[in-house]
Design a protein around this nucleic acid. Structure first.
Lengths: 184, 184
DNA sequence: ACCTGAACACCGTTCAAGT
DNA sequence: ACCTGAACACCGTTCAAGT
């Protein structure tokens, strides 16, 4: 079975790593979920706030690319971030940074939240989706299509294209289009 | 702890529901992951293929809204779909449907894949992200901000706006912008 | 082919007890 | 406040055995 990523940090695994009994951890965290969150929060320190110079668009662009780079190798982190950032001090720090930039584009708080949140969610969900695409590449593929190719005419034709998807370019163009629409 | 959604369908839980020993299930599935996938595949039958009438844009739009409606209440399903659709017969069926529509826009298979995949991924990731936002609404919020409000000036200002995010409108405008950029 | 039963190596968490 | 130890209710999976 072999757990990986944050799934590998369990009460029992960190307890034994610390040379301590699992129950000792309850003195510091109320539950395994809270302990895991603390670990994610720590890792999130590698995510920087947007740069201070440049236009709003370019600052958000740079932040997006830089953040993607950091989270790419830990997509499980991105998933937890998506749901739990308000619980995480570092998550709030990142969101604060995005809001500061957004505030330069509009004075309305609703607009600021829409900009900051959309950009944050875009980067996080792209990282999650890209992970899925990359894993798809390395797997033997489409057993259902192999079994009954008649039902999947188009899929048979384009099957190999899925392995060639350019995630870097798609991320960039998607982000550009998003910022364009958001800050029109 | 209380598992929910697909996490609740475990070897042992379905075994006892079937009045059978956990080991009996290994006669049908090689692992718990495969059994879970079969369950997800079954649920996916509620996702329809795009309609046959209308422009390419409107057909993809309709599909997006309809699919979101189905998956909204089962976001855990969306997450598995994102990574495992090629393994799922029903996942392939849905992708085939999208490719058929995309083929009417361009003859190049690379372009077809980009359109079908982007739309599919958009809907799935939005469903996942929306779940996170909705859960955020019901939770007591931002403990880090409450502890040191000085560090989060903008977040303090706009905090309540996060609970007012209009996920329906954001989904629609995001999809429109995406299709616009994709099929320009 | 399909199923059982006992076992192993894991989880999180509670409870009572120690310092 | 911090930690232990035993216990409980879960997981998935292996192995040997039965029909």
């Amino acid at each position: 079975m072999m757990r990986e990523g944050v799934d590998a940090v369990t009460m029992r695994s960190v307890a034994s790593a610390c040379g301590v009994t699992p129950m000792a951890i309850y003195s510091y965290y109320d539950s395994s979920a809270e302990m895991r969150r603390a670990g994610v929060d720590f890792s999130l320190r590698r995510v920087r706030t947007p740069p201070f110079e440049g236009s709003v668009v370019s600052r958000l662009q740079h932040w997006g690319h830089a953040t993607r780079k950091v989270l790419r190798r830990r997509p499980d982190l991105a998933a937890i971030c998506l749901t739990d950032w308000p619980e995480l001090p570092e998550g709030c720090r990142v969101m604060e940074g995005l809001l500061v930039v957004a505030a330069e584009h509009t004075a309305e708080s609703a607009g600021q939240v829409q900009i900051a949140n959309t950009v944050f969610v875009y980067v996080l969900t792209r990282v999650i989706a890209e992970r899925a695409m990359v894993e798809r590449r390395t797997r033997p593929n489409l057993p259902a299509v192999a079994a009954t190719p008649r039902r999947f005419a188009r899929l048979v034709d384009v099957q190999s294209e899925f392995k060639r998807l350019d995630v870097d370019r798609d991320f960039a163009t998607g982000l550009d289009a998003l910022l364009d629409g958001l800050l029109r």
